[in-house]
């Protein structure tokens, strides 16, 4: 591996260590869940590889033990993963890189890859495209590997490290606090926290996520409209 790639890889490894810990725990829990439902370890492994969207995989694992219903599968997938549309809009420029890496970056854009790749500005001596590529690669590797482990050894392993999954919460908190510290205007950040908290309490955990994204986009439209109007009247 040449030095450009290896420095980018090392930096990506360092930045994704918390995700490794979190995915190891959650991925194994997911693999064990499928194991308990009577599936061969290949199921969680291949689902982790092809779908690569944690919360949806738990839902699909549950659907697999019921009767075949392709329309519900499609509907649930689009609802649960609609947030990716908004990640994509945010990454149109950053992920518009030359060659095949672009397609892999988009394919692997889970919550964690999006957040770390958006929030990290690597030092000047590190190639940003290779860094983002390795972040995505490593995240997918952690997820597939731990799902496989859970599926293989589901009946042998017993967790004693209760509570380790909190690393994911802590990661998102740290990324959010960093965002607050580097921005001058907190409108968007506070909008995200407030809108999603209110909708979570009012609508419950199933629907609040896609509707929060829609409402935040709506607030942006009103703000833009107002900005354009005041601009015109000046």
């Amino acid at each position: 591996m040449d030095t450009v790639k290896s420095t980018a890889f090392k930096f990506a490894l360092k930045k994704t260590l918390p995700i490794m810990t979190g995915f190891l725990f959650i991925g194994m829990a997911y693999g064990m869940y499928m194991h308990q439902e009577g599936f061969n370890f290949l199921y969680p492994t291949l689902m982790a590889f092809t779908i690569f969207a944690g919360s949806l995989e738990f839902v699909i694992a549950n659907l697999l033990i019921h009767s075949f219903d392709p329309l519900s599968v499609l509907f649930l997938t689009l609802i649960i993963n609609s947030r990716h549309l908004f990640y994509g809009i945010s990454m149109l420029e950053k992920y518009n890189v030359a060659g095949w890496k672009k397609y892999y970056l988009i394919f692997g854009m889970c919550d964690e890859s999006f957040s770390v790749n958006y929030a990290t500005d690597p030092p000047k001596d590190i190639d940003q495209v290779w860094f983002m590529f390795y972040v995505t690669c490593l995240n997918q590797f952690y997820w597939v590997f731990s799902s496989m482990l859970g599926g293989l050894f589901g009946s042998i392993i017993h967790f004693n490290l209760k509570g380790l999954s909190f690393v994911m919460t802590a990661l998102f908190i740290v990324l959010f606090v960093d965002q607050l510290l580097r921005e001058n205007n907190h409108f968007s950040s506070l909008c995200g926290i407030l809108v999603s908290s209110i909708l979570l309490i009012v609508l419950g955990k199933e629907l609040f996520l896609p509707l929060s994204m829609l409402l935040i986009t709506g607030i942006f439209c009103i703000k833009e409209n107002w900005r354009v109007k005041t601009h015109e009247s000046n």
Binding site: R83, F86, Y87, I89, S90, M91, L92, E93, D111, F114, S115, Y118, A119, M168, T169, F172, I173, L175, F176, Q179, E183, H186, S188, S189, L190, C191, G192, I193, V195, S196, S197, L200, K205, F208, L209, S212, M213, I216, T217, F220, E224
Partner: peptide
């Protein structure tokens, strides 16, 4: 402009998502 506005809000939503 939407792409510039969204990310801080999304990071906030993801924190709340952990407490869903």
């Amino acid at each position: 402009r939407l792409g510039k506005f969204l990310p801080p809000a999304i990071l906030g939503v993801l924190v709340i998502y952990c407490y869903k």
